[in-house]
Design a protein around this nucleic acid. Structure first.
Lengths: 171, 171
DNA sequence: GGTGCCATGTAATAAGTTACATGATTCG
DNA sequence: CGAATCATGTAACTTATTACATGGCACC
């Protein structure tokens, strides 16, 4: 049920329309919890039905602005502090590693080299993103988003180094 | 479509029944691509219908042993070397980080401390697992599984250190 | 007047989880 | 003979993806 809490979390920051939320998903949550348009609109309807958010304004073109309710805020806090993050993580990148014995060693090394390159590119992308965000420490989302970004950086660097190490192991 | 390739990969190693595969999923792939019983049996039926695997033996209690076909092996190799791993990764642990401004700083720090502890426990679990597996380098799965295990170790250590760092940032 | 963006929704499909349902065989 | 384990399958539900469908408004 994390999509629900992602929407709730964004609305806790500021009232927004589905369209606004979609942009926020693409800009700030894309690396952590991507969501599609159809998911967002559907979830907004359910959250409103459950009283966790409300329509506060209707604008042009059928625009509906939603705001979080007190009940919604309580639910968000409960989720943050009481619900254990679910630690199951699927990785088809690692799944392929298990089966690298099925291809020849040259291909296996090439696969790992490619993963190292992708990770290096990701490090560059995130470093660039960090520069873009620099100084923008106004809202909570930006402050705590930086912590998440740092996680991404460390994770990508780790993957780059692991892949290089793993390639070495295949002889 | 990774479940399909996970099953194919295990069958490439040795012919097995659904029941056998389920145990392999729980033992070796649990951290990388978990699967449930109903998924495995369903996928076996589809793979057989598509000619990528075949029933090679019927045992007691309706046991059906499946083996990969040449077609299946080709598809597995194609997937390993030609299909780009999908790099989207959802993390409700990091999603909560974005919204830590919604709870008080003490709770935010407690959250990060808890994540550091969970990561430390995971490091211990994987180190123990590495010791258990030591010397067992007979089959490809064990050899390449070690590479995946190393990824898990590095990842958990990174997370432990990141969480400790992040907790420090909240003042 | 037309292009681009704002804005919302639905439908179909795929993937994953949980629960239900059943029965055979082995071993002590 | 009873318990544990082996063994397979189906159904209901939830979550996520992709595609379809529609139309208003602003600005040039």
């Amino acid at each position: 049920m994390s999509l629900r809490h992602a929407v709730l979390g964004l609305l806790a920051e500021s009232p927004s329309s589905g369209y606004d939320l979609l942009k926020m998903f693409d800009m700030s949550l894309a690396n952590v919890w991507p969501a599609t348009q159809s998911q967002v609109y559907g979830e907004l309807a359910k959250l409103a039905a459950d009283g966790l958010i409300q329509v506060t304004e209707e604008g042009p073109r059928g625009r509906k602005e939603y705001a979080i309710t007190e009940e919604g805020r309580a639910e968000l806090r409960r989720w943050i502090v009481e619900v254990e993050p679910n630690h199951v993580r699927r990785s088809d990148m690692l799944l392929r590693v298990f089966f690298l014995g099925q291809v020849d060693p040259g291909q296996a090394r090439a696969y790992l080299r490619r993963q190292a390159e992708l990770a290096a590119a990701e490090v560059a992308r995130l470093e660039e993103l960090a520069r873009t965000l620099e100084g923008n420490e106004d809202d909570d989302l930006a402050v705590y988003g930086r912590l998440a970004l740092e996680w991404g950086l460390r994770s990508s660097r780790m993957q780059r180094e692991w892949a290089a190490w793993a390639e070495e192991q295949i002889r």
